[in-house]
Each structure stands twice: as structure tokens, then as C-alpha cells.
Design a protein around this nucleic acid. Structure first.
Ligand SMILES: [Mn+2]
Ligand SMILES: [Mn+2]
Ligand SMILES: [Zn+2]
Ligand SMILES: [Zn+2]
Lengths: 142, 142
DNA sequence: CACGTTAATGCAATCTTGTTGCATATAATC
DNA sequence: GATTATATGCAACAAGATTGCATTAACGTG
């Protein structure tokens, strides 16, 4: 499990293409959730079409390799679904208000909240905003 | 505090206009968070321009009378910031996967999660998805 | 109640993010 | 290397939201 990108792609019955390999490798090396824009910029030298990137990202989510987050700016962000992580439907994210970066908080446990009568929960997500470590250092070192 | 709409608008140093009054009253009577589309539909007889509604909603958020939520469909939704509610920076929402409605869970307490070193939290939001009471009744009564 | 000032509005154009249709290219299988 | 279904590229589209600018109207003042 968690073998090299090509093997993981093939294991899903999908074709190993440069776009899929590149995106998968990029997400593997990322320390945060990347937007389509981030991916496009990072892989600009490969000249992959905008739409192809959208489709690769969608495919990653559908196949369970990645998960999608919506931030307050209505932008989708993607990050690799850690195979060891709990359910994807119990996920916490941190959004830095200074740099806009979104980080996955994989080890934060979320408590099931009490809901009004008749309501039933299927997933619970926690989204924290504030300042990330890098931006904290910048403002401190002024 | 929490006086009539016109007074509350004036208290902010803003002009009392039909659009602001209508939107504020609409949000006051709403049992859920409304999208721009919802507002436009509800106030269609007033013939308020689309852009004016956007600006009124923005103004409500900026002035602290309302708050904005982004749902998984990347649509902004707005609901009145309950004056009695705790901090605005601790807010929970429920999104029904059947009907798409978004409800504020004003009385859910959110625990501050532990963050990585260097990170500091300013707000914490909880977003729950599932089935709302109304849709639950529909499926049960089949 | 007129008047003047300035905030608010209406309208058209624009932007951003993401999606769809269809012809072409290419990964995988033989 | 030929075959075939999948993936890609390109152009067009779509929805939500924003911007620029001329016009309107809220409201303080007289
Ligand atoms: Mn995540
Ligand atoms: Mn709310
Ligand atoms: Zn930051
Ligand atoms: Zn529902």
C-alpha cells in the first residue's frame, strides 16, 4: 500500500498519463492543500491543459486518492488522502488569513455535535482560520 | 439592542434604503442561511438590482450584522448574526445533502483544537452535512 | 420644505472558477 | 505494429461574484 504513483494509478484501473503522474507527485510532496491554480503554476513547464488538470483533480477525488476542500474564497483545494488518516468525512483544515494557504490538520479529532431534533449527521468538518507558522515568524521578525 | 431594522441600520452610520430594509427583514425572518439567489427570489417584487443585493449583503457582513458561509457548492450564504450568539468566530453550520439548505447551529459549542507549533487560531467553524428534519420526514413517509 | 452633498443604486461589462462537447491523440493490450 | 477505449486539447459555456461609472435618492442643513 502507498506504493509509487504509477502503480497506484494502475491499481485503480486507470491509465498512467503524464498529467496524472505529475499531479499525484505534486500532491504527495505538498505540505498543504493545493488549488487548481497552485497546481497549474507548479506544473506550468509541462504545458498541461487547464481542463485536463481539472479532470485529473476530479478523478483523484472520485477515486479516493485525494479529497477536496472549499475555502472561504470559493476555491477548491486538493490534498492527498492520507491512507492512514481516519474517514475523509471527519477532517479539519486550517486557513491562514495572511498567506491564504490551507493546511490539513490530520490528527485533530472532531466531536460529534448535538443536532436539532430530526437532523442526522453524515460528516463533520472543522475549519480553523488564523495565522500559520510561517506568517507568524514574518510578523514577529519585524 | 436588536431594535427595528431602520434603527439598526442608522446606528451604523449608514443610510436606510429599501434594499437594506428588505434584505435585513428577510434575513430576520429566515430560519436558515440564504444565498444571493434566495434573496433575489424572495424580493423579486421589489425589483432591486442584482448588484445592489450583492452590495447590501457584503455591507451586512462588513458591518457585522450578518455573516457569510460558503457551502460545498461554492455559493455564499448569509444569515443574521444573532446578537445574543457567542463570538462570531465560533460558528457551526448544517448542510442538508438532500435539499441543499444550510442551517446555523447557534448553540453548538466548538472546542478549540490543538494546532501545530507556530499556528494560532482566530476563528473555528464547524460544518456538518447530513439530512435535515424536513427531508427526514419525507423519506420516512414513503 | 427646498437644497446640496454624498452615499447608494442601476446597468453593462468584466472576472474567476469550474464544466461540457467533440475531435484528436495516446496508453494499454494484443 | 495495429487496435481500441481512455485521456487530452481546445473552444465554448455557465454560474457566481465584482468593478467602473453615470445617475438617483437619503438625509442633514437652512
Ligand atoms: Mn484535508
Ligand atoms: Mn451561521
Ligand atoms: Zn500564512
Ligand atoms: Zn433537507
Amino acid at each position: 500500500m502507498n506504493s509509487d504513483p504509477a502503480t497506484r494509478i494502475r491499481a485503480l484501473g486507470a491509465r498512467v498519463t503524464p498529467a496524472r503522474l505529475a499531479v499525484l507527485r505534486l500532491l504527495e510532496g505538498a505540505d498543504r492543500a493545493l488549488s487548481h491554480h497552485d497546481v497549474e503554476a507548479a506544473l506550468s513547464d509541462l504545458d498541461i491543459d487547464r481542463v485536463t488538470l481539472y479532470r485529473v483533480l476530479d478523478w483523484l477525488v472520485e477515486s479516493g486518492l485525494a479529497h477536496r476542500v472549499t475555502d472561504a474564497q470559493r476555491v477548491f483545494r486538493f490534498s492527498l488522502a492520507a491512507p492512514n488518516a481516519p474517514q475523509h468525512d471527519q477532517h479539519a483544515h486550517f486557513r491562514c488569513e495572511d498567506c491564504g494557504k490551507v493546511f490539513c490538520l490530520d490528527d485533530v479529532q472532531i466531536a460529534q455535535p448535538a443536532l436539532p431534533k430530526g437532523f442526522s449527521a453524515k460528516s463533520v468538518g472543522l475549519s480553523v482560520t488564523g495565522q500559520c507558522a510561517q506568517c507568524d515568524r514574518h510578523t514577529a521578525a519585524k
